[in-house]
Amino acid sequence: MKESSGSSGLRTYVLTRLALALPTVLILLTVVFLLMRVAPGDPITAALGARLPAKELEKRKEEAGYDKPIISQYGEYLGQVVTLDLGESVTDNRSVTSILAENGSATLELTVAAFMITLLVGVPLGLMAGRYRDGPWDVGGRLYGIIIYAFPVFFLGFLFQLLASQFGWPTSGRASPLVEYDLDSITNFYVIDTLLQGDWSAFWDVLQHLFLPAFVLGLTISGVLIRLIRVNLLQTMRGDYVEAARARGVSERRVVINHAFRNAMVPVVTVAGLQFAILLGGAVLTEETFNWPGIGSELVRYLNQRDYIAVQGIVTVFAVAVVIVSLLIDLVNAFIDPRVRYR
């Protein structure tokens, strides 16, 4: 059905965008690498300086390649990234890959769940607020947006923990200790793992643990989303094509959903996607509050111990994740908006 510029335009756009992501990643990696080396001294001395004899330190430095010129260190670093082997943390000898697998998956699981709650709360409320301007939904939605945004996550977290503990609802960790002990890590996403094992009581236990932190984190961002959707919808509701559709007698419901809402979502997708990217690294407060073994709290721990290798590895993955998310945003936008893929 689609002629000429329809789907082939989309394909060209996707390929171009993918090709453009590579240099972006390279630049980011370089920045991460350089940042880690601006600090005086080397990572080994920084982390272990006072704890090991000088000889042992030298040996470790040689092993890690810190005696080599910076350019060959850079080459090695890039090589590590490509082979997905980001070395071992200095302080506790965990491989960065396993840190990511264990703690990264916890964060990703939390973030995805929180984001689903954000969408579930934010999209309908934003839609109602924009659709019925100055009505009860709008006033309520705006008020909610402000209040929820003003509450610090840990305050909201404690509040809900207090409430939940009254009903015996779990308020900390990813699963009950026994469930966690029995769990075979296949994907490291507990929700998926328990499902794969077909263990329904474990699945329910994991879901219960996930709900509270995801709910708190999700609510926090939903305030921004409501306001964003509202303001964009108010704008598109005044759009010329919306009036034109009304002039053709299209029902108000259809006008709002087919024209105003879809057009309002174009900028929302971008901002919501970036919010998601920020969440990946910025869920530290929620993770701390709910004792959630996420990557954010691990990063803070390694930073405090000045374990630069672990930090470098985690930050590298964050950087790549942000690039991937923004790539996804662009692809979604191209899918929604034909003008994006037209150029």
Binding site: Y241, E243, A247, R248, V250, H259, R262, N263, P338
Partner: peptide
């Protein structure tokens, strides 16, 4: 509303923005 379209039509001054860009 039911009359708008089949009975009463309207065409506008500014055609550039009257069609939904996403459709």
């Amino acid at each position: 509303r039911d009359l708008r379209g089949p009975e009463l039509g309207l065409i506008f001054q500014e055609p550039m923005t009257r069609l939904d860009p996403l459709q």
